[in-house]
Structure formats: C-alpha cells, structure tokens
C-alpha cells in the first residue's frame, strides 16, 4: 500500500483507504476460499473415502456418523482389492473376480504413449510443411484442415466405428492409437510456433549445406521444444481421460479377444461402478482415486508447462 501514499491528501484519507483495502481483501479471500473448498470437496471425499475401510464407509453412509470415516484407522484395503481384481460384493459378501486396475493402467499407458508419439510426429512434420515449405495447394489444404476443426467429432465417430470394425481393429491398440493419431489443432498450434522462427536461420542453414529435414531436426525442433513439450503433456492427459472412443471400441471383451481385457482406466472405472450395483462405495471411490492420482502427479511436476500451454493454446479438455 505504501506505493499509493503519494495519491492521498492527508493521513486520514490514507487510513480510510487502508481500512477499505483490508475489508475488500477479507471479502475477496472469503469468496475465493469458499469456491476453493467447493473445488476441493470431491477430492477430500476421494481421499477420505478411499482410505476408509469399506464396511465403515457403508456404515457412515447409512448413519451419517462422521467418526466412521478413516481419519484414525485408515487402510489400503480398497486399493488392494482393486489392484488384485478380487472385489467383495457388498450384497452377497462373495469375492468377485474382475480385471485388475493394473491391467487398465498398462493398457492406458500403452495407448496414451502410442497415440502421443503418433500425434507429435505427424504434427511436427505437417507443421513444418505448412510453416516453412512452399508448395502448390498449401493454402487450400491448410484452410480445409482448419475448417474441419469446426465439425463435431461425433459426426466422424459413426464412420470411424464402422471402419474400425471393418478392418478388424476392434479391441486392438491400433484403434486407440491411430484413429485419433492426428490432431489438426496441434498442427495449427505448432505451425504458429514454427512461423516465429526467423527466416534468416533457414537461409543460413541452407548456406551451410543443411537440407530441409536437417534444418527441421537441428534447428526448428530444439527451438520449438517448449511447445512440443506442452503438446506431449496435453496429448497424454487427453488420452488418459478419454472415455467415449475407448468405450466404443474396447467394451466387447466377451465377444472379441477374450484372453486380454483391452479396456482403459475410464471405461474400466465406469464398469466398476456399473456392474457392482450393490458394491461398496468406498471401493468405487478408491477406483476414482486410482484413475485421478497419476495425472495429479503429472500436473504437480509439469504445472508450468500445462497451465501455460492451456492458456496460450486455448485447448478445451
């Protein structure tokens, strides 16, 4: 507040201003704290519920006795059940065999890494062509790519689903990796970064006898690395959280590919909730926790990249 002192006629005006400032600050922080708690509420439930003994949590649900929650005697048994694939049914008391979440993790990691690799490679190459090279039809092609960004993905899903069945990709990683292997948005985003690289560098490289691809590899990619990192992280996050497409192409585990459960974390989680109608809530919450947690770790490590990338590129998750 000291820097504003010069604006005020006398001390009483300054004091008035200071009091007003304090009141405003209290209001601001109160509002923000209330909303922050609203934001954190699901996470608090996730944390407490998943660490509470499944029976205790059921008791809590029917009695609203908060002492039942696992503040004192917390347990990992819910996670054990999820990862061992042996879940106790609340109604029958029997142990039911399901797919372990470790399997879903593995599937999701494979498909996320695969699709991110394909996305990044195709986006870098295409953005290079659009930003740096001259060829006939460049503008028309780029405009038509941009136009497709307007079209809702649901329109393409219908045919893509049929294509996937027709070429035998149902329940394969290929369907999860290649069908959304190119993101027009990332091409567009990367092209903007590439265009900011001065032309003189390209010509200097040419003088030194470096070819187009050599220039891309040795100059453009290192310069655009922050953008590429952002694309990698956002693409991984998108693949981890995707639900609709994996649900369509991997849900038929009984008809196709019986030995191997191809489902991803989101679809597996939905199944956990869906099939276990009489199941323990604590186990379901633990499932949510298990699905959410890895991305939290990624977020904490790459917070700057993610927030900067999202605000600059304006990507809707």
């Amino acid at each position: 507040m000291a820097e504003h002192a010069m604006y005020f006629a006398d001390d009483s005006a300054l004091r008035k201003y200071k009091i007003k400032r304090v009141v405003i600050n209290v209001l601001l922080y109160t509002f923000l704290t209330i909303f922050a708690l609203f934001m954190l509420l699901p996470f608090i439930l996730m944390l407490v519920g998943s660490m509470t003994n499944a029976d205790s949590f059921s008791t809590f649900e029917s009695t609203a006795n908060f002492a039942e929650l696992g503040f004192k005697n917390w347990t990992f048994s819910n996670f054990e059940q999820i990862f061992s694939g042996k879940i106790t049914n609340q109604l029958t008391g029997q142990t039911e065999n399901t797919t372990s979440f470790a399997q879903f993790y593995l599937n999701t990691i494979i498909s996320a890494v695969g699709s991110t690799a394909v996305t990044v490679v195709t986006a870098v190459l295409a953005a290079f062509a659009f930003a740096r090279l001259e060829f006939k039809g460049k503008n028309i092609l780029f405009a038509s790519l941009l136009a497709t960004m307007m079209i809702p993905g649901e329109l393409m899903v219908i045919t893509n689903y049929q294509t996937t069945i027709a070429i035998g990709w149902r329940n394969t990683f290929a369907a999860l990796i290649f069908v959304h292997g190119v993101s027009v948005f990332y091409v567009f985003y990367l092209r903007q970064t590439f265009q900011q690289i001065p032309n003189e560098l390209y010509l200097a490289a040419k003088v030194d006898g470096v070819g187009d691809v050599g220039y891309l590899w040795k100059v453009m990619i290192p310069i655009a690395m922050p953008t590429i990192t952002t694309i990698i992280i956002l693409s991984l996050m998108g693949a981890w959280n995707s639900y609709v497409w994996p649900m369509l192409v991997t849900s038929d585990k009984y008809k196709y590919n019986q030995d191997y459960d191809m489902r991803l974390v989101s679809t597996g989680l939905m199944e956990l909730f869906n099939q276990q109608a009489g199941g323990y809530s604590a186990i379901k919450i633990a499932g949510s926790m298990v699905v959410t947690f890895p991305l939290f770790v990624v977020f904490i490590i790459f917070r700057k990249y993610i927030m900067r990338g999202v605000s600059r590129s304006g990507i809707k998750g």
Binding site: P42, M46, N241, V265, L269, I285, G287, M289, V298
Partner: peptide, 10 residues
C-alpha cells in the same frame, strides 16, 4: 486434470 468419469462418480 481430473478424469471426468471419476469426478462424476464422486
């Protein structure tokens, strides 16, 4: 960064 399925279920 939260999975929307996990969130809806909570």
């Amino acid at each position: 960064v939260t999975n929307s399925i996990a969130l809806g279920l909570v």
